[in-house]
Each structure stands twice: as structure tokens, then as C-alpha cells.
């Protein structure tokens, strides 16, 4: 036991004169150079808005459009296209006659602003992270 202690002490004094070795002076630069393409790759592959969200937003948009187009026959207090194209009786015209321009535009703008707003929040977060 006493010898173990002596050995431990002796090793400590031996290591006291030793120093850590240093890699080449441009070691950090070399590591960073190897990492650069990888981080670019990572950035290229990470979409700001994930695929599933785009699909969801697309579905919502298509759903809204069909909902609006399905409102055939409901009189619009604003512009009614059917007056200008009388005599042509197709489903497109019927659908178009149901379009209440102001409301539809409203839906579109709401969806668009939701998407842009979402993008802006994500972009801001990403940029702040990079600048920190």
C-alpha cells in the first residue's frame, strides 16, 4: 500500500514536467474547412417549412377554394359574373357566378398572409441563430 502511494506520487512528479502536445498551427482552420461543405449541405437540405406543412396548407387552400366554388346559387351582393355572360350555361360559369369576389379575395389574402407570416417568423429565428 505504501509502495502504491509512492508510485502514485512518483508518477505525478514525472507528469509535472510533461506538457500537452500541440497539433499543427493551422489545425483549427483545417477542421473548419472540412466542416464548411457539411454545414452548407445541412442548410441546403433543411427546408424552412417542412413538407407536411406545405401539404396541409395546400389541402386547406384547395378545401377553401372548393368551399367557395360550392356556394353556387347564393347571391352575391357584389359583382355577379353571370350577368355579363348570359346564355353560356356551363358548370364553370355557374361556379363563377357564385363567386363573391370580396370574400374569396379575403380568403386568399388570409391564407397568403398566414403563409408569409409563418415564413417570416421562421426566417427571423434562423437568422438570429446564425448571428448569435
Amino acid at each position: 500500500m505504501k509502495d502504491d502511494k509512492a508510485l502514485e506520487e512518483w508518477t505525478r512528479t514525472l507528469f509535472d514536467v510533461d506538457e500537452l502536445e500541440s497539433p499543427s498551427p493551422d489545425f483549427t482552420r483545417k477542421v473548419m474547412a472540412q466542416l464548411q461543405p457539411q454545414s452548407v449541405e445541412r442548410l441546403r437540405h433543411s427546408a424552412l417549412i417542412p413538407k407536411w406543412l406545405w401539404i396541409l396548407l395546400g389541402c386547406c387552400f384547395v378545401g377553401c377554394t372548393f368551399f367557395v366554388l360550392g356556394q353556387v346559387g347564393i347571391a352575391s351582393p357584389q359583382i355577379e359574373y353571370s350577368h355579363s355572360i348570359e346564355g353560356i350555361n356551363t358548370w364553370v360559369v355557374e361556379a363563377a357566378s357564385g363567386l363573391r369576389f370580396a370574400d374569396s379575395l379575403g380568403y386568399i389574402f388570409a391564407a397568403l398572409s398566414a403563409m408569409i407570416g409563418f415564413q417570416v417568423i421562421l426566417l427571423k429565428k434562423q437568422l438570429q441563430g446564425r448571428m448569435a
Partner: peptide, 27 residues
Amino acid sequence: PNITAILGGDAKEFARLVDRYKNVVFT
């Protein structure tokens, strides 16, 4: 080194991490 900053893409902070531990890792 600030790990959150590195994860956010801060290259300088990662270079600081490398500088700090490179000698022990190399030894």
C-alpha cells in the same frame, strides 16, 4: 463554448471549442 450558438450555425463558437480542446484530444 456555447452549444446553442454552435447548433444555430455559429462557426466562430465551434472554432473556439476546437481551440479549447484540440491539445488534449491531439495528445
